[in-house]
Design a protein around this nucleic acid. Structure first.
Length: 570
DNA sequence: GCCGTTTTCGGCCCGACTGTTTTCAGTCG
């Protein structure tokens, strides 16, 4: 239940940014670093894996990096009383419209205030309308979609013969689950010609800016694309700089400063040496090595401990697509009269696709038969029919020595009812090798009830996997609220696994929670949730999530070979 | 206002681009 004093992380982040803007407006030098501190705190809150309110309940606010004694005290007041007098004091006199205007690119607090004071009223009204439509649109791109846009532009730019190297960078290279804008780097002997070609990209709506090294265009749908061009000799530093993340780069530069070095997209120079001698790097690997660090994979560059790990040679050996030996969530077209959607490809087609992907085993995980339309007896009969079909497939693939798929498992993706029971009778559960459970309804239970529901559904001995655990749909639906430490603890103790759903709309478990899960030793699975054989190609996006969550091969169940996997099911 | 493998005090990333106040402030990534 929402009460006065309940704030979402996003609301708190906004509030902290407003306070930062308030200090900025005061324009006094003494606030220079306080502004940065508030902005950093806002970023940290926005990216926190727990609701700040919950952390506050547990007295753990100051465990969020960027929140210290002062901000923590003001937040305490905010949660207790629904307001913070200090925050209000800082932003006093700033009209709410100013904060709205700041959401437009190119407008900061000072420009916004000037517009409101001296600007044309009509123009301000126009701009505010723009903000509103921006807020309504304000969608980030799904990873595969962004990758495709980048690939198209890269093909287009490659036609310029001066381009010797070209890469998609930024959050796309870091394989974030959603992408805000698209960054591309180019090594070229003739930067001007590349930049000119770029701003003339046929699909470009308008060119935002164009300088000596960089240019930006806007594609339909307000998709911003940034290009950065350099000579080949310093391409390594450019890769490093433009891949980010911003926080990774700041942390890296702070580390470098302590060694008397200054980093930029052009290379590394010594702070003391007035000679301005720049050391350039063709390779990113050498750039990190020069700083005394192991090479850090792009997926890890979020300033969440990777720099320290690189110093101590403790970086994980990240999982790759080649490590995966199975797909553990596939919906075939075998009709078991489900209440949700069936797959479109037959079991035979799925097995064939599994062979193409060199998998050793697969699991058929259609949704459970609809409970509303069947008696328990009918459900059991339907499931027996499916069992027979799976046995028949296994018989037919048994002696095909050339094929990689040696076995398919008879599984099921089962709804959990709001009370935590499962809509399949015990006689039906018996037909299964193992089962997945997932939330498909009642997404908005409070945290405690939702957690109880999940733990109850997971406790059935046949249930091994908690599938698409948060239930989120990227840019469409927030996930369910769950007590993750409790869920992970249960999974660890009871040998249950948590799925990384590879559907680009889901990518669920989210990467930050993946990291928390494996830290505790919880095992994860990959499931493409394919409803067509081609959906099995989505494994690669799940790999991205796992890599961003610091997963190594042994964190993931489907890297086991068939006999190891079967042992776990016994 | 935050933070610590040189510091509990004294630091705090770095450069591009725009527009205009032609030397810099504002904004951005």
């Amino acid at each position: 239940m929402k009460r006065r004093g309940d704030f979402t992380n996003l609301q708190i982040a906004e509030l902290l940014r407003d306070v930062a803007a308030g200090y900025q407006l005061k324009g006094e030098d003494k606030y220079k670093f306080r502004i940065i501190a508030y902005d950093r705190a806002a970023d940290a809150v926005e990216h926190a894996t727990s609701e700040l309110k919950d952390l506050w309940d547990d007295g753990k606010l100051e465990e969020v990096p960027g929140i210290g004694p002062s901000i923590s005290e003001h937040l305490d007041e905010l949660f207790k009383n629904g307001r913070s007098r200090h925050f209000e004091e800082v932003v006093r006199g700033i009209p709410p419209d100013a904060f709205k205007l700041m959401q437009l690119p190119g407008i900061g607090i000072k420009t916004a205030m000037k517009m409101l004071k001296e600007g044309d009223k009509k123009e301000v009204a126009e701009k505010l309308k723009e903000v509103k439509s921006l807020q309504e649109k304000n969608k980030r791109l799904l990873l595969p979609f962004a990758a495709q846009i980048a690939a198209d532009i890269i093909n287009y730019l490659r036609e310029d013969k001066s381009v010797s190297r070209i890469d998609p960078l930024g959050s796309l290279r870091r394989q974030a689950s959603t992408i805000g804008d698209i960054d591309i780097a180019v090594a070229s002997s003739n930067p001007q010609s590349v930049l000119e070609r770029f701003v003339e990209y046929p699909k470009s709506q308008k060119s935002i800016e164009k300088g000596e090294h960089t240019a930006s265009i806007l594609l339909p749908g307000d998709i911003r694309v940034d290009l950065m061009v350099q000579p080949e000799g310093s391409y390594g530093a450019l890769l490093q700089h433009f891949t980010g993340s911003k926080h990774h780069n700041i942390a890296l530069r702070e580390l470098a400063l302590k060694k008397g070095l200054s980093l930029s997209e052009y290379g590394i120079r010594e702070v003391k040496a007035k000679s301005e001698k720049l050391k350039v790097f063709t390779s990113e690997n050498d750039f990190y090595k020069f700083l005394g660090l192991d090479y850090i994979e792009p997926e890890l560059r979020e300033d969440t401990g990777e720099i320290e790990a690189a110093q101590n040679h403790k970086l994980p050996d990240l999982i790759t697509l080649e490590d995966v030996k199975a797909d553990l969530q596939i919906h075939s077209s075998f009709d078991i009269e489900t209440s949700h959607d069936l797959g479109e490809s037959s079991m035979e087609e799925v097995v064939k696709k599994g062979n193409e992907l060199a998998y050793e085993y697969l699991a058929f995980t259609e949704h459970n038969p609809s409970q509303a339309k069947h008696t328990e007896l009918q459900i059991t009969d339907i499931l027996k029919r499916k069992r027979e079909k799976v046995e028949q497939i296994n018989y037919s693939i048994k002696n095909r020595h050339k094929d990689s798929v040696k076995k398919v498992f008879n599984s099921l993706e089962i709804d959990m009812k709001p009370d935590g029971t499962v809509p399949v009778p015990e006689s039906g559960m018996k037909t299964l090798d193992f089962a997945l459970v997932s939330i498909h309804s009642s997404f908005h239970l409070d945290r405690n009830s939702q957690t109880k529901r999940v733990l109850s559904a997971l406790s059935h001995p046949k249930v091994k996997i908690f599938a698409h655990p948060t239930g989120r749909l990227l840019e469409k639906r927030e996930g369910a609220e769950l007590n993750w430490p409790e869920i992970f603890d249960f999974c660890l103790k009871n040998n249950k696994w948590v799925e990384i759903n590879c559907d680009p709309m889901r990518l669920d478990l989210p990467d930050t929670l993946v990291r928390e899960a494996i830290k505790l030793g919880v095992k994860l699975t990959f499931g493409t949730d394919a409803h067509h054989k081609d959906g099995m190609n989505n494994m690669i996006w799940g790999i991205s999530v796992a890599r961003r969550g610091w997963c190594q091969k042994n964190d993931i169940i489907n890297t086991l070979n068939l006999s190891e996997f079967e042992k776990l099911l016994e």
